[in-house]
Design a protein around this nucleic acid. Structure first.
Length: 681
DNA sequence: GAGCACTGC
């Protein structure tokens, strides 16, 4: 290969010497020999082993030695390496390109959503696990790949679990394809049961020792305990920065204030969580004066996504917020829960990156022993409607027999199938319909994809595109604490549409475009500029998918009386299963087959009254059962838009049911042949 | 009248 014959720069040899010092190099020959003799290899490499940057290069070397330079149809073979996060895919590939003395995007590249930095020359490609899953949808045999390296498998993300299951099948029909599964703290038993007889290579990491300290008694209040531990560390321990793990934004801001009030400017206290603006996140890397100790108070983001050097002390109360899904009620909730032993060890390891450190666990050794070994895989804690759609699209006939490391609860699968059936994505035999196939191409939840696909029937696909984009990104309304709060609320109310939050989001999106996507305008209006920019990118991507399927882009005339009515009906065409009815008791009840629940309008809503019927975007359980992002709809629309769903025989007796029955009667009376079925099956 | 653990397509 040209690449191999090229004269290398001095810098290349300089870096090569450093690379050879990484722990993983000791195992290079062993790894290559094992890969030669096996189709699958498991590799456990702790933090600092160099596995993410080096193993794919070893693999590439082996592939290039054994294969001619071109693959199918004259295209080059690829070695792919998946990462759970896009930032990692991008930064690691840059690093590797540098190590190999090539330009990024040429021989070494990456592909993440919204950005493909690879070319026909690319032979080593880093990509997010979700991206490889998308590629598999277009080509289930992943024909261009010679070897796939699945990194961070221990994180058990939904996409990586699905890839494992899929690759297990693919490897049978593609004996020439190889798989390397890499992880930090592989639960050897579990992976060995999943990959029977597969060789395992262990590479030590390069961490300094971390002393673990437990409390003698369980702590009653972990927040107070965390704060007093920080103070104690500051008073009694030698210099070194502190990292405290807490569960959420509010808790973190609260803790920061309390630490500052106790220690003043002897310390520099920095909060860290994902919704913090990037400039604020950057502060964790600011150097501090010699005598000042840095104290970082962080969510789980510092456990996996962000690495901070210089931490010597870790304070670990043992909790994090975790997503849970209840298939019976179809509610996703965020619950403060005990972490796993693997998480606790990961947290402790953050103290030993630059020198020996200490980890203060605010629980007893006995409690630690009682924690789960590993965190629950994401697939066990999620609504699986989208996952099932993906699997169907990948050609999986029998979902129950699809070999996953952790099988989801049967109820969760049943719910997902049920929802997809009602959306017209699956037929009576559980096969993917044409609509379902289209839906699977959208990087959206099935309801939203369905809403987009049918939106031209309501003559408002342009508006539904904008609303979908806004719903796909994080909350665009900034609401600071303190004095600015009132101003923020006023700014928000200037966008409010009294018929509902979806329409309010549309107003914000239009206003953002009208103001030329100006960041200063966002600042004045308390709008999150980043969220808006990403809504614009999402919308562009959705438009491309729409045009691929030749779905018409259209708008009702803005002055038309039906402008908002059409949009609200289109919302319902996707979200007809997420409707609530105001009962005479003054409470809303969700209205679904076989189940109803008391819910409350989330206080962030923009409605000026409580309408009889609402459609909602999400159902969240926090302090109460809330429905968030709600829009006023009319009961008779349910009968028009989703008659196949609202057959009522399966619905529990309720006020809502009686109201709907009246609508059906009325419709029957005035029934003409113009009765339109809006939903294509 | 209340929040947004973290990702990803």
């Amino acid at each position: 290969m040209d690449m191999m014959k090229k004269a290398y720069s001095a810098r290349y040899f300089d870096i090569l010497e450093k690379r050879k010092n990484l722990p993983v190099w000791v195992h290079k020959e062993e790894f290559l020999q094992t890969l030669k003799e096996n189709q699958i290899v498991l590799l456990v490499g702790e933090t600092g082993s160099g596995k993410t940057t080096q193993i794919p290069q070893f693999v590439l070397e082996a592939v290039l030695n054994e294969n001619p330079s071109s693959g199918p149809k004259g295209k080059k073979w690829l070695v792919g390496c998946t990462q759970p996060r896009r930032v990692a895919a991008m930064s690691v590939s840059r690093r590797v390109a540098e190590e190999m003395d090539v330009e990024i995007g040429e021989e070494v590249g990456y592909t993440v959503r919204f950005e493909d930095c690879s070319s026909s020359k690319t032979v080593l490609k880093y990509l997010t696990d979700g991206m490889l899953l998308r590629e598999a949808m277009a080509d289930p045999l992943l024909g261009r790949y010679k070897v796939i390296v699945l990194d961070e498998a221990h994180e058990r993300t939904l996409a990586s679990d699905l890839l494992l299951g899929l690759l297990k099948q693919t490897l049978i029909s593609r004996p020439d394809l190889k798989l390397v599964v890499m992880s930090a703290n592989l639960e050897a038993d579990k992976f060995h049961k999943y990959f029977i007889g597969v060789p395992l290579i262990k590479v030590p990491g390069r961490l300094h020792p971390v002393e673990i300290l437990y409390t003698r008694e369980p702590e009653r209040d972990y927040l107070e305990a965390a704060i007093s531990t920080v103070i104690q560390i500051h008073m009694c321990e030698p210099p070194g920065d502190v990292l405290v793990f807490l569960t959420g934004e509010e808790e973190i801001e609260d803790a920061c204030r309390k630490i500052i009030s106790k220690l003043g400017d002897q310390v520099k206290v920095v909060p860290l969580y994902s919704t913090l603006p990037p400039a604020m996140q950057q502060k964790i890397f600011d150097p501090t004066p010699q005598a000042v100790r840095k104290i970082i108070v962080s969510t789980n983001i510092a456990e996996t996504s962000l690495t901070i050097d210089g931490i010597v002390y870790v304070v670990d109360p043992g909790f994090s917020k975790q997503k849970l899904y209840h298939p019976d009620t179809r509610v996703e909730s965020l619950l403060v829960s005990p972490i796993s032993q693997a998480s606790a060890d990961q947290r402790a390891g953050r103290a030993g990156r630059t020198q020996p450190g200490k980890c203060f666990r605010l629980y007893t050794q006995k409690s630690f022993n009682e924690l789960e070994k590993q965190s629950y895989a994401e697939i066990l804690r999620s609504n699986l409607a989208n996952t099932v759609l993906t699997l169907k699209r990948l050609g999986v006939k029998n979902l129950v027999r699809f070999d996953l490391m952790d099988a989801p609860a049967p109820e969760t699968l049943a719910r997902a199938l049920d929802d997809l059936y009602h959306l017209g994505a699956l037929d009576d035999d559980c096969n993917l319909t044409k609509t379902g196939e289209m839906m699977s191409e959208f990087p959206l939840d099935p309801q939203m994809a369905k809403m987009l696909i049918v939106s031209p029937q309501f003559n408002c696909s342009n508006e539904i595109l904008s609303i979908s984009a806004m719903l796909s990104v994080s909350n665009c309304f900034i609401r600071p604490r303190g004095e600015a709060q009132k101003a923020a609320d006023e700014a928000k109310s200037s966008f409010a549409h009294i018929d509902g939050d979806h329409l309010t989001l549309l107003n914000v999106f239009h206003a953002f475009l009208q103001n030329n996507q100006d960041s200063d305008w966002c600042y004045e209006k308390f709008i999150n500029y980043r969220a808006m920019k990403s809504a614009v990118s999402v919308r562009e991507q959705l438009v491309r998918i729409m045009s691929r399927f030749q779905i018409k882009l259209c708008s009702p005339g803005f002055n038309s009386q039906d402008y908002y009515v059409n949009i609200r009906k289109a919302l319902l065409a996707g979200y007809f299963m997420q409707v609530a009815h105001l009962e005479r008791t003054g409470h809303y009840l969700t209205f679904r087959d076989k189940d109803d629940q008391v819910v409350h309008l989330h206080p962030s809503n923009c409605l000026d009254h409580k309408p009889e019927w609402v459609v909602y975007n999400e159902y969240v359980f926090t302090s109460r059962n809330f429905i968030r992002t709600v829009t006023y709809i009319r009961g008779e629309w349910l009968v028009d838009v989703a008659p196949h769903y609202y057959k009522l025989a399966n619905f529990p007796n309720s006020e809502a049911k009686r109201v709907l029955q009246k609508h059906y009667k009325k419709r029957k009376l005035s029934e003409e042949k113009s009765c339109k079925l809006y939903l294509l099956r």
